[in-house]
Structures are given as structure tokens and as C-alpha cells.
């Protein structure tokens, strides 16, 4: 009975959505904000990657919000999973261990590259941070008896998050609005350009990386504790 009701609800909902989207005029939607930003961003922000200009410039507060949402989810996860138990398990085989040893530096470089070039090429703090987290988690798959130092992870996480806010507050203390980009724009497309945006992305990358790494460690520890 319950399944039928759910099915009816879903059917009705998808029918409604189809009717709504069916009535929309596709082709040339009004692009008031989109066009405005495309015209203003190169001179106003100075980031070659316009997506970054939006993410960290025009909508920087939303990014701080997203960062906080991830932090809230990790904190809530920590609350549910409890404090970490010891890790156990047999070490991986030769191929796994050697592969991880080879991959670790490469992933570290790739992650940092994606973070540092966020204002120039596709990518940025969130994407690079995930690569960094995976880089630090891989060795734990090969050598389960070792563990990452949680104290360090939480210190990096806290300081990186605070650095993002501090960069915003610095603008406030100069008499400008919160999160106004600092410093000169520099040359469009150069590595050191678009003011404080790369610094913001570095903070995002470190925070996301540390957060995800500690969440992965926590999840894997609990998994093995249960089995």
C-alpha cells in the first residue's frame, strides 16, 4: 500500500515537472546577470577563469557558506560516528604498496596544481582538495595499521577555514566590504594574478582536503571495527 502511494506521488510529481518544463521557452533565456558578469569579470576581478571569478568574487559568500556546509556535515558525521577507534587489518601486497608509493607524490603535485591554478584553468580548491585527501588516504589502504594524525588534520582544517574568513575580514578592516578581493589584479592569465583569489582557493583546498581525509579515515576505521 505504502509503495503504491509513493509510486503515485512520484508519478504525479514527475508529471507536474514535465508540464512545467514543457511550457518553458528554451533557446534564449534572459541572461541578465550572466552577461553582466561575463563583461565585467575580466577587468573587475582579473581571473582568467570566469567561473572562479564568480565562485570567489561575485559569490564569495556562497563559497564560504558551502565550505561551512561541508564542515557542518563532517562535524555531524563525527558526532554520529563517535571518537575514532584503532585501525586494524593486514598490510596490502607488494603491488599495492609500491603503486601507492609511486602515486602519492604524483597525486600531491596534481592536487596542489589544481588548487594553485584555480583562477586560470578549470579546477580550484574544492576539486584539488579532494585529490589531496585521496593522496593522503591511499597510503592507509596499503598500510591499514598506520593512521593519520588527527590532531594535525584538525589544526590544518581549523586554520585553513579561519584563513578564508581572515582574508575577508582584512578587507573589512581596510574599510571595504567583507570578502572584497585584496591586492592588484596583475596580468590576466599569469600565475600570480587576480589579487587574493588564489589565497582563498588555497585555504579552500587545504580545508576540504583535511576534512575529507579525516572523514575517510574515520569511516574506514569504523568499517573494520564492525567486521
Amino acid at each position: 500500500m505504502r509503495n503504491i502511494a509513493t509510486l503515485l506521488l512520484l508519478g504525479g510529481l514527475s508529471f507536474l515537472l514535465l508540464v512545467i518544463t514543457g511550457g518553458l521557452l528554451f533557446g534564449n533565456p534572459p541572461m541578465l546577470i550572466g552577461q553582466g558578469i561575463q563583461q565585467a569579470a575580466p577587468t573587475e576581478v582579473g581571473a582568467a577563469n570566469i567561473v572562479t571569478a564568480v565562485v570567489l568574487g561575485y559569490r564569495g559568500l556562497d563559497t564560504l557558506g558551502e565550505l561551512s556546509i561541508l564542515f557542518a556535515a563532517a562535524t555531524a558525521g563525527g558526532l554520529v560516528l563517535g571518537s575514532t577507534r584503532g585501525r586494524s587489518g593486514r598490510p596490502g601486497g607488494f603491488i599495492l604498496r609500491t603503486g601507492v608509493d609511486l602515486l602519492f607524490p604524483l597525486m600531491l603535485v596534481a592536487g596542489l596544481y589544481v588548487v594553485m591554478h584555480g583562477h586560470l584553468t578549470p579546477g580550484g580548491g574544492f576539486q584539488g582538495g579532494v585529490i589531496l585527501a585521496a593522496a593522503f588516504f591511499l597510503p592507509l589502504l596499503a598500510r591499514p595499521q598506520e593512521s593519520l594524525d588527527h590532531t594535525w588534520l584538525s589544526v590544518i582544517e581549523a586554520l585553513a577555514g579561519s584563513a578564508f574568513i581572515a582574508l575577508g575580514l582584512a578587507a573589512l578592516f581596510e574599510g571595504r566590504a567583507f570578502l572584497t578581493p585584496l591586492f592588484d589584479h596583475g596580468v590576466l592569465g599569469a600565475l600570480v594574478s587576480s589579487g587574493s583569489l588564489p589565497l582563498l582557493y588555497l585555504a579552500v583546498g587545504l580545508k576540504v582536503g583535511a576534512e575529507l581525509a579525516s572523514l575517510l579515515v574515520r569511516l574506514s576505521a569504523d568499517d573494520e571495527g564492525a567486521s
Binding site: 561551512s68 562535524t75 584538525s154 581549523a158 579561519s162 574568513i165 573589512l172 578592516f173 566590504a177 567583507f178
Partner: peptide
């Protein structure tokens, strides 16, 4: 300095820093 954005940002900053005090 009475910028109301601080009323949003300060609790966020506190939330980020609070886990450090567990040590």
C-alpha cells in the same frame, strides 16, 4: 566598526576554531 556582516562571520569563525580547543 559596526558592520552587520560580522554577526554572520564571527560565529562561523568560532565554529571553525572551536575543535582546536578539544586539545
Amino acid at each position: 566598526m559596526t558592520d552587520v556582516t560580522l554577526a554572520v562571520v564571527l560565529p562561523l569563525l568560532g565554529a571553525f576554531l572551536l575543535p582546536l580547543t578539544a586539545h
